[in-house]
Design a protein around this nucleic acid. Structure first.
Lengths: 211, 211, 211, 211
DNA sequence: GATGAATGAGGTTTCATTCAT
DNA sequence: TATGAATGAAACCTCATTCAT
């Protein structure tokens, strides 16, 4: 009978299951609210396996963050935008940014957790900052290309724009419950998400119009 | 008659001290990370006084949130914008929104905590939604006045704009640590805060330009 | 009825009970073998009270050691030997040393625990070394007085003698189980203890005889 | 045929390595403080090998103790003292006893561990008591020979003397940290060890002088 | 023989909370 | 009003040990 079967005793799969469960737990509860036991339950592993593979809760959190950043990086990598005209490229970046937060919803909770801890983990990790360098370069290039062609205004700060592109979607999602109460609607609904996506494009592209 | 050292005044002051300490603690640590003991310490009261006045941690958190919303309301109430021309009114609203988050920095942590708890407390509290109704009305009116005068484009959704006005500043502040790592600057510095304030005005007002 | 009663809720008594139980536990099981839960049980207190009063296990151990040294000090202080003739004074010191280890049997286990931890706690604590200074002085004086009167030999090192006086009784008691197996007797019996006491006097005093 | 890298030799060597590491671990940490994992690490073997060869921690401890007693026995066996004059024989025994504890320093920690466990293992093991019978006989004979020749006093209890010969060195070494703090010197230094050896000879031989 | 995966028991500690004064 | 004593629940983590390969 086939070598290498038995879904149990598969270290790689088990580690992945733990990491998945931990990602969800930390994203939804924050670092302090997360329970190692609850992660074990969701990963269907004995709690001690978590300590076996990840030493302690702190370390597990770091592993989760690193995996998350790695997912973000691969998302960025998938974009093939440099050959597109600047307005189309920018529009696609805006949409991709928003959709990533929807398709990988844990990223918001994780970043929130990270910031609540004053960026304890991200601080000093050159890996993470460098991860965004290509993205920032791309924004700068696109702005240059766009203003050269008279498509964009010429006075845009790429860093500020980067923040805003993220802010518009992130805040909508991260604060959906208080916003939902204020606006008396369910921000998670398909229609509302689509509407927000459109608005984000409008506000950024509207701002970029030449003066 | 006043038996013994002015008990009434003290009660009020003590409660206020507890509330202040709790506001800071919940804002910085989140609900789960907050420690009742630590609140007692910072408020310089015996921990039991907290239970005496606020029953339990959950209740204390609710009291903190309500006090926070009340501060937000008073900020809004202070604005006297209806008599101003629409562009000036809008600009002032944008600035006031950003500055409130800087002057009352705990509000960000508190809203984050609230949303991490799925808005458990805000949900159903008509008090809070009504709190923003006048603000949303103001935005709608101003947009109408502005587009009537040809100052603003005519297709702006007031609710989306409200979200964006908040998003632009909130995200910058709430995610300052991860953003700071990515951009390699200290987002808290005076200059960077002023620069962001300008950019937020630019992006919103730039978008509102007539088509 | 009388103020200040109710044996429960008496902090001093409770702390003392915890300290007693901890002394016994650490003496019998060593630091690593000691169980905080077991201490709580024997002290008839909730385990958390131990943490309330002593922070953690390590700290509790330190408190136990300090209490033990304090008992030792008071034993030394009780001796009024300086007015006695040197041989009588020395004999009484020898007996007192042995009897203290019998009357406060935990001291042996505690010192063993301390030494197994490489004296982590005693190291640097000037309190402890100074505690023995008067005792060492007394031994030196007595040796001087004795040799001056021709009662003792003149070449005795007081520090070495101090070690030996303690060694003779301590080793007998600390290693009573292996020794008991080798010698096929119960070293704890009244007779055997008395016999040992006599022998210790004999060996020290026999050695001290003038050459 | 020798399938795969000399398995037999390895087994013996591996077991020996485990035993060595375990001896050190138990001696330094005591039974409860010892970690099987740490033993595996120091022996450079997989932890499961320890369970393979020794079943469990308790059993490993027993094996360590038996190996230790066997070393002690071989030390005794090496002594060829019966043909020497009694005073010289006695002096050599005293020195050999002290030096064994220095050359095989783990013996002290192991005996301490054994006694802390109330001699659980040594109890009933006739092997161990018999191990010392020849030694006790030798002491008795030597005392007899010595007093017959007028070299020693005639009233010495051999068992008590045996205890003292061991006590004088064992206590010095086992309690070196507390003693070191009290006396403010490093008892492990070459000079201090030599000085102690001399003193132990002096005190025993001094006591044995005829009355 | 040797190794990594997995588990169960239990230990220390934290923390919210109640009780008694 | 205010405070220290006391408690229960549960969290994190360690460690010996077994299982499967």
């Amino acid at each position: 009978m086939a070598t290498k079967n038995t879904p149990q005793r598969d270290a790689v799969a088990t580690k992945a299951r733990i990491l998945d469960a931990a990602t969800s737990e930390f994203a939804h509860k924050g670092y302090d609210g997360a329970r190692v036991q609850s992660i074990a339950l969701n990963a269907k592993v004995n709690i001690n396996l978590i300590y076996h593979y990840f030493q302690d809760k702190e370390n597990l959190f770091v592993a989760v963050m690193e995996a998350a950043y790695s997912i973000v990086r691969s998302h960025h990598g998938d974009l093939e935008l440099r050959s597109l005209p600047p307005d189309e490229a920018m529009r696609r970046l805006i949409i991709a940014t928003f959709r990533m937060a929807i398709e990988f919803p844990e990223i918001i909770g994780l970043l929130t957790a990270e910031n609540m801890q004053l960026g304890r983990h991200v601080r000093g990790s050159s890996l993470i900052s460098s991860l965004y360098d290509t993205l920032l370069d791309f924004i700068k290039d696109t702005l240059d290309r766009g203003s050269a062609r008279g498509m964009f205004r010429g006075d845009v700060d790429p860093a500020q724009l980067f923040i805003s592109i993220n802010a518009e979607g992130y805040f909508y999602l991260s604060n959906r419950y208080t916003l939902g109460a204020i606006l008396r609607r369910n921000l998670d609904s398909k229609e509302n998400l689509a509407q927000r996506e459109n608005f984000i494009c409008d506000i950024i592209m509207g701002y970029l119009r030449p003066i």
